[in-house]
Design a protein around this nucleic acid. Structure first.
Lengths: 190, 190
DNA sequence: CGCCATACCGGAGCGGGGCTCCATTTATAC
DNA sequence: GTATAAATGGAGCCCCGCTCCGGTATGGCG
């Protein structure tokens, strides 16, 4: 890669980070190019699709999330491991607004730049789930995609200002839904 | 209202119904006007905002949903009443794609044309929930807004093609999360 | 050092969207 | 039949995503 190209690439990425943090996943690409002092054509050459740009932005975080799951796979309390990973995933979705629908779409589109990262996350979560299921600590009628879906649903709630502050509470509720507490869950605590 | 105005109003509504059914809540207003053989200005006079148009489209369904809840309030099995209303609400969100984020936003915006219908639905659901809670059949750390949020989250899942076919299953899972079965729930049935 | 192939750049241009505004047309009351 | 207020419709403005290509700068080579 030529020196000027690399410079522009990194400029774009930095600017995109700001813009997406500010306006969510559907930030204006034209605006990003403008703010990076770069032509629109340049942006599109480096990132042919919006997914490609977001992939570059999210790759680090998504890989980190997968790594975390792998690390938690050795835990001897698979239920705790599962819920804490679930929380971590949810926390990640808070870094940028509106990314979760892109990710959901990417799951089904093998050509999306986000496809691989997303399926990686899904499988990582699936393995954590399976370990919990094997010890009778989680419902067995749930699979990795269901787990991803529930995380996505909660992430969507986090994007809606009417519901955002209830996400923590609702994620507990939903976690209780797929976990099985052998000592009998204490429900309706309030 | 002048006769021609009324004619156009109804044409627009009919066309909008088709277009929104086809392209979801963010269907092109320009396109709706075109397909209704009506100027864009005419559309905007009758429906000054997109919310206003959707309000006209959804009013019937939303009122029906509220009515159903009121009817179920006399049920002597409040848990069954709650879940069947929850399902009905979910079924409603399937009539048009992408309406749920509009509704979530309307909940917090008193100026939205959809505000009243949405808060009505929320309160109707809240009453059903309270009855179930009073008989110890539902978690008490949940309120009407939480219920609305969970319905919205499932509706969002229904809009994502990767998750749509799991909605029925996941709605059972989530229903189990806020219901309390006194005989002890049979979890992980599969 | 200077030259040239080529990788790279930028933005004009296209189609489409939301929304406004007002000259023109039309319905209706008299 | 006419006056008048109501209603119309589309041109116009700005934003968007995306493509395409004439111009420009870089880096290797003589």
């Amino acid at each position: 890669m030529r020196a000027d190209a690399k410079k522009n690439y990194e400029r774009l990425l930095a600017t995109a980070r700001e813009a997406v943090a500010e306006h969510g996943a559907d930030a204006s690409l034209r605006d990003i190019a403008r703010r990076a002092n770069v032509g629109l054509g340049t942006l599109y050459r480096h990132f042919p699709t919006r997914e490609a740009l977001l992939e570059a932005l999210l790759r680090v975080n998504l890989d980190e999330l997968t790594r975390q799951a792998e690390q938690l796979e050795t835990s001897d309390t698979p239920d705790v491991a599962l819920t804490s990973w679930f929380r971590a995933g949810l926390a990640f979705t808070r870094t940028y607004g509106g990314i979760v629908s892109l990710m959901a779409a990417a799951l089904e589109d093998p050509d999306s730049a986000l496809h691989k990262s997303c399926t990686n996350v899904r499988s990582a979560g699936a393995r954590l789930l399976q370990r919990a299921q094997a010890k009778g600590l989680a419902r067995v009628d749930i699979d990795g995609t269901d787990l991803f879906a529930l995380m996505g649903a909660l992430a969507w709630l986090g994007d809606q200002s009417a519901f955002a502050r209830r996400v923590d509470h609702l994620s507990e509720v939903i976690a209780n839904a797929f976990l099985i507490d052998p000592s009998g869950p204490v429900r309706g605590r309030r």
